[in-house]
Amino acid sequence: MRDTAALSEMVVKEKQRPELRRRFIKNRALYMMILPGFLFFVIFKYIPMGGLVIAFQDYQPYNGIWNSPWVGWKHFERLFADQMFVTILRNTLLLFFLNLLFYFPVPIILALMLNEVRINIFKRVVQTVVYIPHFMSWVIIVSISFVMLSMDRGIINELFVMMGFEKVNFLMSTEWFRPMYVLQIIWREAGWGTIIYLAAMAAIDPGLYEAARIDGASRLRQIWHITLPSIRSVIVVLLILKIGDVLELGFEHIYLLLNSMNREVAEIFDTYVFTAGLRQGQFSYSTAVGFFKSIVGLILVISANWLSKKAGEEGIY
């Protein structure tokens, strides 16, 4: 019995092989189209993943990956013993929670407000304006903030003086770093963040509002009892996905704000990797730091996606 099964399997395989080749030849043009992009992913995404092995070596550029000595978990041990690790972790978590608390609700509220606008032209103008900062680079956002917050005739400090307050050195201060970070995110992303909520709101059955009005529900009550519950699932998914992104605080953004005076509160994993690796040449150690971050990030994203599926919503992957 077994033999015949094996035999028939072989026969099937024999049949499949030319079939596979035939299909490959038939579609060779399609494979040629995929090839350049595929090579891009291999070279710039997968080879660097393999390059993570230098986290377990004392990598020296002139020895290369093949000849650098292996050192096991040395760099990870150093990281976990490092006082800097505690600082980075604290900064990361704090900035994340501030972001969640002060940024996350803003697009929802803004979308609720826009959704109540009945004069279309007004709505369009406001939307057009609040989307603009999203298209500006972080360099532009931070530059405009710096010009306005500068001690040297920055408009905010000039206003402070006019109102009889002292000038504040926002850019060098540790206390002002976090509010500045969150406010810049709100300025740049809040408007753009409304799009997905507005789309969800557009799908709500207008009959619901009409029924509520006939029952005498005020506008606020309609928002509370109809609009919000209708976009609940979108909010849940975006919230969960955001939690999956805890470690992605925006390297491009924070790198610009970082200076020797606020390092204590502004240093995050990516900026630390950048400084330790490329500025100080500690390739292996900084790769270990980055590796740790990537692994934790991967676990978080997968759990977040699992959670959002569990919550009855569609995951993204």
């Binding site: 995404k45 080879i47 660097p48 990797v273 980055g290 971050k293």
Partner: peptide, 9 residues
Amino acid sequence: LFSGGIIPT
């Protein structure tokens, strides 16, 4: 979901 990070790249 996962990347080699700044230094290996």
